[in-house]
């Protein structure tokens, strides 16, 4: 028996394809957002709000990732933006390959923004780079303020945390300060926006943040 030393990043293939996707996006000046959360935290609801606000001024495309079904794509379609549904058929996350396969269905020259809604899952999507500009995660207050302690990886990789469903704060015991502190404990750069997709509260700062990022992607 003999040992072969290797030193190989296990996800190198996904990383390479993600960088390939990223190069496409950069070349076309498209800002790409990877939207992640546990099932039901409010990704699609927040996306619908964001589309209503920004789609009059920006050309936005959407990729919906779900294990099964096209419920979310149907919701997005009503907003009159191009949308593609990916069904993973079991896998708990999107990967760079699945996204790459759909890119030809968009005319990137005709897009300012591409939003990729990942499969609802608080663990797996964190490991798989899609080639996005920013990872945005949603945590709803209904899930509990202990989530950063229990799922530190997702909070570590995110660029933005949308703390959703704050309209429910009177009904649940959720310490916003604690959740914010713990979410930022391993991620000094994390921006946190407490919001409600239902009432619209808190969404203005998020829209302004997003506009800044879109402008930056265009300027490059």
């Amino acid at each position: 028996m003999h040992t072969i030393a290797i030193e190989h990043e296990i996800l190198a293939d996904n990383e390479a394809l993600a960088n390939h996707n990223r190069a496409h996006f950069l070349a076309h000046g498209v800002y790409v957002l990877n939207l992640m959360s546990a099932p039901g935290a409010g990704k699609t609801s927040l996306l619908e709000r964001t589309l209503a606000e920004l789609s009059p001024r920006y050309r936005i495309g959407v990729i919906e990732g779900d294990v099964y079904g096209r419920e979310d794509a149907d919701r997005i379609e009503k907003h009159g933006v191009p949308v593609v549904q990916i069904n993973t058929g079991g896998a708990c996350h999107l990967d760079a390959h699945l996204v790459h396969d759909q890119l030809e269905r968009f005319d990137l020259d005709q897009l300012d923004v591409l939003v990729i809604e990942n499969v609802g899952n608080l663990v797996c999507p964190a490991e798989f780079d899609l080639g996005e500009t920013d990872k945005v995660m949603v945590l709803s207050v209904a899930e509990g303020d202990d989530k950063p302690k229990k799922y530190p990886v997702m909070f570590h990789v995110a660029r933005v945390l949308l703390l959703n469903k704050i309209d429910l704060l009177p009904h649940v015991s959720f310490d916003v300060a604690r959740a914010t502190r713990d979410a930022r404990a391993l991620n000094l750069d994390l921006d946190v926006f407490p919001v409600s997709a239902t009432t619209g509260e808190g969404l203005e700062p998020w829209y302004r943040w997003l506009e800044g990022r879109i402008a930056r992607a265009k300027a490059r």
């Binding site: 072969i4 190989h8 490991e127 950063p148 570590h156 930022r184 404990a185 000094l188």
Partner: peptide, 27 residues
């Protein structure tokens, strides 16, 4: 979610994200 030395937080992560194949033994 803190520095193990002093308990300080927040901190910048410098290691712990590795996911690497280092070697295999072949017959």
């Amino acid at each position: 979610l803190a520095c193990a030395g002093c308990g300080g937080s927040p901190v910048r992560v410098t290691g712990g994200r590795e996911l690497r194949l280092t070697s295999i033994d072949i017959e």
